[in-house]
Design a protein around this nucleic acid. Structure first.
Lengths: 141, 141
DNA sequence: TGATATATTAGATTTAGTCCAATTCCATGA
DNA sequence: TCATGGAATTGGACTAAATCTAATATATCA
C-alpha cells in the first residue's frame, strides 16, 4: 500500500471537492479527510466506523451517498473483489490490484493494460469507462 | 459471446464432471447441461430460473452449492462486475471481459496480462490464483 | 427574511448469498 | 436383497451490503 497523500501537494480537501464540482458540506469534508489523506482501500463500513470513531456525526446512508458521489466525480475508484466486499480506492491513477483470497488483503501493483489493444476491441457503440485488473492470490502452502 | 461448446468435442457432461473429481448427481448433471453446452455468462439466479423452466427439480441452495463447487474445481470462473451481480463464466481459459455499465452486458475479449510481470510482483508468501480483467464501457453519446 | 433547492437522516426494504437441520439419495458390503 | 452410513439436496431462516423513502435540516439567494 502506498502511503503518500492522495491529494496533490498544497491542495486541501475543500479545494479537492470544489474542483470536482462537489459542494463541500461538513460531512463530505470529514469523509474526504478520512479517504484522501493517503492512498488506501476501504470498505463503506470501514469508512463509517472510522468516521464514528473520530466523532464525526454522519449516517450510513450519507456514507454510501458520498462514496457513490465521489466515484461519479472521479475522486474514488470502486474495486469489486467478491460478492460481499466493495473497496473504495483513493488512488484513481491506473494500476493493478492483488487480492489475497485467504486474508482479504488488497495491495497495489504498478501496471496497465495496453490502451490500443482495448480500444481496438471496444464493443460497437461503446466508450471506455475504466479498466480493472484484479490478480487473485492465495497464501503459499 | 462465443457460442462454441465449452466442452471439448467428444466429451459428455458426465465425463467432464468425473474428470474434475465431481460426483455426477442428477442435479449437477442437469446444471452442467445448462452451463457447459456453450460459452456464456450467467448469474446464479439465471441458472436457477433456466433450470426451473426446463423442469429440473433443484433448489436455490443447490444451485449455489453447485456453482461454488464448479468454481472450486476449476470448471467455472466467477466474475465480479459490481456489488450486486456475480457472473459465472463457462470459459475458464484466459481472456478479458467488457462490462457495459449501462445495459449490464458482459462480453469476451482475447487478451492476457503478461505472466512475468505479475510473477515478479506477487506479494511475499503468496501464489497466483488467477487474473481478472474487466473493462468497463458505457454506451456512446 | 422567506423561498427554494440540496443534503442528511433513521429506519424500512431489498436482495445475493449462506447457514442449518431434516430428509433423500446412493454406493457398498453383508 | 436389504441395511448402513456418508454425501447431496432441500426449504426456509438468516445475514449483511446497499438502496430507498419520506421527514428534517441546512445552505443559497432574491
Amino acid at each position: 500500500m502506498d502511503s503518500r497523500s492522495a491529494l496533490p501537494a498544497g491542495k486541501d480537501v475543500r479545494n479537492h471537492l470544489s474542483e470536482a464540482g462537489i459542494y463541500p458540506t461538513s460531512q463530505r469534508q470529514a469523509l474526504a479527510g478520512i479517504l484522501f489523506n493517503r492512498h488506501q482501500h476501504l470498505t463503506a463500513d470501514q469508512v463509517y466506523e472510522r468516521a464514528r470513531r473520530e466523532g464525526i456525526k454522519v449516517s450510513r446512508a450519507t456514507v454510501y451517498n458520498t462514496l457513490n458521489l465521489f466515484v461519479d466525480k472521479g475522486l474514488l475508484r470502486e474495486i469489486f473483489v467478491n460478492a460481499s466486499h466493495t473497496f473504495y480506492d483513493s488512488n484513481v491513477h491506473p494500476h493493478f490490484h492483488f487480492y489475497n483470497i485467504d486474508d482479504g488483503q488488497l495491495t497495489d501493483m504498478e501496471g496497465r493494460v495496453a490502451d490500443d489493444l482495448i480500444m481496438q476491441n471496444l464493443p460497437q457503440g461503446t466508450v471506455l469507462d475504466g479498466v480493472d485488473v484484479v490478480v487473485r492470490v492465495r497464501n503459499h502452502s
